[in-house]
């Protein structure tokens, strides 16, 4: 029996395998940096890894909707940030007060040192957006424009948020002395 209908179009403009290859490639290049960023945000390694994995899987699912595949990295960075924010919100307890997260194992504590842990504690007492601005600017070393894109705000907002955040952080650290 002759086929009398043929398929000539499909919604995704690339076959799933090619999309997966692109996503896996991006993962290889950026997973370490993004997992480190997630670690700074959420404090424990398993959560950080899960957040990054989920963000990349989300990228794979949404690839056909990406307006510009060149911006896939920015997209997944935003996704990681948003997921971290949700994790912290769900925890509803101060960053380190819940329990000692695995990153603060004895060896990590030796690596990180008490003073630095105090700075991290202070970072996590800031409002979420201030913390995010500081992490993107001073950990990820993004420019103001890149930070603005990731946070979906204007560069002006990035400037003012960052400046307020540093002031607040400084004040918290001083109080602790």
């Amino acid at each position: 029996m002759e086929p009398d209908l043929i398929l000539i179009g499909r919604a995704a403009d690339r076959p799933p395998d090619a999309i997966w290859a692109a996503v896996a490639d991006l993962y290889e290049g950026h997973a370490l940096a993004l997992t480190r960023m997630a670690l700074v945000m959420v404090g424990d390694r398993p959560t950080a890894e899960d957040v990054v994995h989920e963000a990349f899987l989300g990228l794979y699912r949404r690839w056909p909707h990406l307006r510009d595949p060149e911006r896939a990295v920015a997209y997944v960075r935003s996704a990681v940030l948003n997921r971290c924010r949700n994790v912290l919100r769900r925890r509803r307890v101060p960053f380190f007060a819940e329990h000692l997260p695995p990153v603060w194992s004895a060896e990590a504590a030796a690596l990180v040192g008490e003073e630095k842990r105090e700075v991290m504690n202070a970072l996590h007492r800031l409002p979420a957006r201030q913390r995010e601005a500081l992490v993107l600017r001073y950990f990820c070393d993004l420019s103001e424009a890149q930070t603005a894109e990731t946070m979906r705000v204007s560069t002006g907002t990035v400037k003012s948020t960052t400046s307020r955040a540093l002031t607040a952080l400084g004040r918290i650290l001083k109080e602790g002395q």
Binding site: R36, L39, R45, V119, Y138, F139
Partner: peptide
């Protein structure tokens, strides 16, 4: 800023 950079960097480096 420098303290912050140092602290976050140290955390990141555990990975």
């Amino acid at each position: 800023e420098e303290q912050l950079r140092a602290a976050m960097s140290a955390v990141g480096d555990t990975l």
